[in-house]
Amino acid sequence: MIDHARDLVSVHDATERLLTAVGKMDDAAVREPSRLPGWSRGHVLAHLARNADALVNVLEGRPMYADASVRDADIERDAPRPLEVQLTDLRESAARFQDTGAAPADWSRTVELRNGVTDVAARVPFRRWVEVELHHVDLGIGYRLEDLPADFVARETDFLAERFAGHPDVPPTRLTDGTRAWRTGREADGPEVTVTGSPADLLGWLAGRRAGTGLTVAGGTLPALPPL
């Protein structure tokens, strides 16, 4: 069951970890490459701030972004800013998201995200939690997939396995960390590929953060996953 109030607390806690870590950087570090191809750390920080405002738009019934070009232009505009400006923007945009999440609302309503994707409003705080946690890892400043909260890893693995379920380009695949198991890809019309690894390695592969290092594969080759 989705608990948006609990997820808002998790978003707050994750944001505080992020702000503390980013606060130890300097302006030169902001300009250095992140782990995301083509993005500096400043791009990641700018995206996180603008994403918070975009999700406020979603919760308040407005388009998430005016269009893709505006989204990209805003990130490019904000990426070169000094650390102190980035921190202030992160903090203030996060507060706006938390304030919007705390307002009385019908959390069972359907909201629209990017590219026509819809979801229940109650899942929006979890979506923001995903942004904060994974992009903290993307900064490459010492926070690793192995450092993510265990409940977050389990839920995001659930979410991504479900996202790829039924995808025609992904073969029937069973994922397991030795304790839990998930299925994804096409409906089983033959032998399944079984992918085994640690929770962090499985999530890293599903989320496009790791190429499959640390995973073992039986019954075929490691499936190529579509971009998120």
Rank of each mutant, 00 (worst) to 15 (best):
M1L: 12
M1Q: 12
D3K: 01
H4A: 15
A5Y: 09
D7V: 03
L8A: 13
V9E: 15
D13E: 15
A14P: 08
E16F: 04
E16C: 02
E16K: 11
L19P: 08
A21H: 00
A21I: 02
V22E: 06
V22H: 12
D26S: 12
D27W: 03
A28W: 01
V30Y: 08
R31C: 08
E32I: 02
L36W: 01
S40I: 00
S40Y: 05
R41L: 08
G42Y: 04
H47D: 10
A49M: 05
A49R: 09
N51T: 14
L55P: 00
V58C: 04
V58S: 01
E60T: 15
M64Y: 03
Y65C: 09
Y65W: 15
S69P: 00
V70M: 06
R71F: 07
A73L: 06
A73N: 02
D74W: 10
D74M: 13
P80H: 02
P82A: 07
P82Y: 10
L83P: 14
L83C: 10
L87A: 07
D89R: 15
T100G: 01
P104F: 09
R109Q: 12
R114G: 02
R114N: 11
N115C: 00
V117F: 14
D119P: 00
V120T: 15
A121L: 08
A121C: 06
A121N: 07
R123T: 14
V124Q: 06
F126S: 06
W129N: 09
V132P: 10
E133M: 10
H135R: 01
H136I: 09
V137P: 12
G142L: 09
R144H: 12
E146R: 13
D147Q: 00
A150T: 15
D151T: 15
D158M: 07
A161N: 04
A165Q: 13
G166D: 08
H167M: 07
P168E: 14
P171G: 03
T173R: 04
L175R: 06
T176P: 11
T179A: 14
A181E: 15
A181G: 07
T184P: 06
T184A: 05
D189L: 08
P191S: 11
P191F: 10
E192G: 02
E192D: 14
V193D: 02
V193M: 04
V195E: 04
V195W: 00
G197I: 02
P199Q: 04
A200S: 15
A200F: 05
L206V: 06
G208Y: 08
G208L: 07
R210M: 05
V217M: 03
V217A: 02
A218M: 01
T221S: 14
P223T: 05
P223V: 09
L225M: 13
P226Q: 12
L228A: 11
